[in-house]
């Protein structure tokens, strides 16, 4: 079947099987490799993208389910003059180590900073609960995202 998705403002159309996962469409059809495939069970958050402005795990969704919605991947977070505030802060504070979880933390960090009110550590921790960092650098990640969100 023909699957037509809008990713980072660009339309992609491809003949695919309905069983194709959203994460595979993003990586293999759109060629956007910043969204990673991690645990494949919805626990690690490496495949997180924004779907109509809400964070979702693209390994738990069929590509066909995302038709008619706007998808933003980590590549789409970047602004004209480079990285967005969360990406820039994560980079400057050296919050990410191996970087495998970068897509997850950048996506959810951006969502938290733009949507959560009265930010504190607890809210940020709750928001980040769906992303796993196996380098265990949570402390700096939480501090960095809290700082950016408080300044929004």
């Amino acid at each position: 079947m023909k699957i037509k998705l809008n990713i980072n403002g660009t339309d992609y159309e491809s003949e695919e099987e309905p069983r194709m996962l959203l994460v595979d469409f993003i990586r293999d059809v759109a060629g956007l490799k910043g969204t990673h495939v991690g645990c494949e069970t919805g626990s690690c958050g490496a495949c997180m993208v924004l779907l109509d402005g809400m964070p979702v795990k693209s390994c738990l969704m069929l590509a066909v389910q995302a038709e008619g919605k706007k998808i933003i991947t980590i590549e789409g977070l970047s602004e004209k003059n480079g990285l967005n505030k969360v990406q820039k802060a994560l980079s400057e504070k050296k919050a990410l180590q191996c970087g495998f979880c970068a897509a997850g933390f950048s996506i959810i960090g951006t969502w938290i900073s733009e949507n959560e009110k009265n930010i504190d550590d607890k809210k940020v921790k709750e928001g980040l609960a769906g992303v796993v960092c196996r380098c265990s650098g949570y402390d700096t990640i939480i501090k960095t995202i809290t700082e950016v969100a408080k300044n929004e």
Binding site: G42, L51, L60, G130
Partner: peptide, 9 residues
Amino acid sequence: IGDIAIRSM
């Protein structure tokens, strides 16, 4: 239930 990315789906 889960986390925000699960609750949003």
